[in-house]
Amino acid sequence: MAMCGKKFAYSSQLLSSASSRIFSFSWGFPFLVQKSFKSSGRRPKKKIYYREHDLDRVMELQKKPSLILQLKNIILNQKNRCILLRDLEKEVGIVEKWNFMSIIERYPLIFKVTGGSRRPYVLQLTDKALSIVEQQKDVMEMMEPIVVTNLRKLLMMSMDCRIPLAKLVLIQPELGLPKNFMEDLIPNYPDFFSVQEFKGHDYLQLESWDSSLAVTHRESNLFMDPMNGKRLHFTKDGNCSCPFSFRVKFPAGFRPNMRYLEEFHKWQKLAFPSPYLNARQFNPASPAARKRAVAVLHELLSLTVEKRLTSAQLDAFHAEYQLPCRLLLCLVRNHGIFYLTNKGIRSTVMLKEAYDGSCLIEKSPLVRFNDKFLSLAGRIEHSLNKKMPLTVEVV
């Protein structure tokens, strides 16, 4: 999807030939443009997708930290926790090698190179970096019950309570799973998981259903909302405390009119089946099933450590979760719930309610550990209470 400046245009089909109307889509509520011109030969108004600069900045700020963390893991995976500089190319390729060489030179508090004078150059972590790394084992122990629960929920949401192992590996870092989770984690929970072959592929199969886990992140937040049941009227921000409503954040430049808000409020009140019920029970063309698909996407993103996945990663799970055929259009239409950004290396889908400005609101132990390690690089964080950037002190 091509972007231009602050916003980009895309085309969609008009569903009515009325001279003046609301654009009502099959997903149950109007989209960004609310009225079209009367049929007088003039071009219809373009559909605008508004940028969220704070969320774009999240991805821009991740470029160098992601390289730092990747290089750290490469070093720690070596037998002696060090690697010859000449072997770095074998790990990352000749093109990426130079990006990492720049990182090594730029952050001497994290990486150091020893050798020379007829000795090979060796890359390793500094003593300060190693002192933080020593805490990683405790962090992974804290993460284990979290990732096991999230993995069970992922399997419970899937069509047949199983997911191909290759697809889990695709989102392994985003779920917070250890690198060798199939050897180090799965065998420890035979009551929850098993590995089975199906049509020539290995699948992770759910062994036991736990009804207490069949509660979505959306529902949990709704139960904790002190205004639950007291804000049934619709507001200009689109939020209400209906049992089937989503928390939305419209873009700053988006100004919905009253007719739009009325239609949107009807969609917010529309009942839909739980994402943990099997999708085969429902007609995918029904409004309730389409709203359920939005809830499935919401829950998938909620189960990741940073509440985001790339578009390609989401697209890989079409069959397992019966995602919309036109997934990209579904995400764009629900612009108050999800945000699509092309910043960074890949197009990324973010859960808007999980961020306050550019800061992730709920941080898992793994995210807090990574932040602490990256503080050696002087990474900029954002305070939740202030808009001014807060520089993390170097430990």
Rank of each mutant, 00 (worst) to 15 (best):
G200R: 01
R255A: 05
A252Y: 15
F234H: 15
S212H: 10
N221D: 09
L177T: 02
I186Y: 11
K179V: 07
P226Q: 10
P251E: 03
C161S: 15
I186E: 11
I171N: 03
G176R: 03
H217P: 03
P190T: 06
T235R: 15
K249C: 03
D210R: 01
N221G: 15
S158N: 10
L165W: 06
D191F: 09
L170E: 15
M159L: 11
F250Y: 12
V195A: 06
D160N: 07
F254D: 01
P251S: 06
F198K: 14
R218F: 12
P256C: 00
N180L: 05
V147D: 05
R152D: 11
E219Y: 04
G238H: 02
V215R: 01
S211N: 11
S220E: 09
P190G: 05
I186L: 12
M227I: 00
N150L: 00
L177R: 07
P226R: 09
E207Y: 07
L206A: 09
F193E: 05
N188Q: 13
F181S: 08
S194R: 08
E197W: 05
D210T: 06
G200T: 03
K230Y: 10
R231Y: 06
Q205V: 09
N150P: 04
S211I: 13
K153Y: 05
G253M: 12
A166I: 06
Q196C: 08
G253V: 06
M258C: 11
G229R: 07
F198Q: 13
M224S: 10
F193P: 05
S158Q: 10
L222I: 08
D191G: 12
M157E: 01
L222E: 05
E207A: 14
R255P: 02
R152V: 15
I146C: 01
P256I: 00
V148L: 10
